[in-house]
Amino acid sequence: MTQTLSQPAISARPTQPVKRRFSLLRHGPRTVRWIAVVVVAVLFSFPLYWIVVTAFSSHGGVYSIPPNFVPSFHTGAFTYVVTHTGWLHYMFNTILISVTTVFLVICTSAMAGYAMAELRFKGADFFFFLVLGVMMLPTQALLIPQYAEALHLHLLDSYLIQILPFGASTFGVILFRQFFKTLPREYAEAARIVGVGHLKYIFRVALPLARPAVVTVALLTFISSWNQFQWPLIMTTSHSVQPIEVALSHYMQTYEANWRKLTSAVILALSPIVLLFLLFQRHIVAGVAGRDSGVNA
């Protein structure tokens, strides 16, 4: 067999790449580890799956032993919940509150982050520590005085009390500050020279350029706002302004032990968030873990 110059005789198969990922758990071939991965994923996904199964099982099927793992399609309970509860209204409340909160947070965090990143003024450090300090305060301990304050400000039982206290986010301020620091200072200088004011610059130049940060802050704020339970539980009493989490809590009383109806309600409450997550999973995780989350998918 002739050998061409371009094919050295030595390598019959590709050599191991020089950079090998270090593998820690090597009890056996890789398949064992992959099995473990799948098991973990299944374990974590199972309860959600179980919700769906329970909601759509037949009336008696819920109580069968051994339990049915295979979903059926009895939509009776689900349609009942959809049509007979005010879930749409609660959903509306929740969306209203969350969207408004996101909008507020982006504005306040961008403005504050910009001021801390670009402007030189006395007390910059003080404000930075002020922001850090908020993160250190234990949330549970403040609930009583926060309630008292809301009472005296006549904000109880309103949309406002569910929005305003969350209208600024320490995470948002810090994230925007970090991001704005990476913008070349000539951008702001060019704007100063042509007489463009700070606010206009923030909303026309800095924020559009900070799109990843905006997306991250928006997503995380939305999720956090959607998942609020204890706060609206304390601060509101009337159904007209309550979000869907509190509504679920009420359903537990209404549908006590009617698991099909309960889980149907749960599905309604969960779907928007799950959908959002599936769509934006990468951004959300990146926002939580920081830039180097160690994954590339």
């Binding site: 973990v40 994923a41 974590f44 959600l48 919700i51 998942n227 309960l262 968030i273 799950v274 999973q281």
Partner: peptide, 21 residues
């Protein structure tokens, strides 16, 4: 990312909803 998503998904869900199940 799908594996990471599976593990992380419970965290973004509202606690009330999932506690029910």
């Amino acid at each position: 990312g799908i594996w990471r998503a599976a593990v992380f998904l419970p965290h973004v869900t509202p606690v009330v909803a999932t506690s029910i199940i």
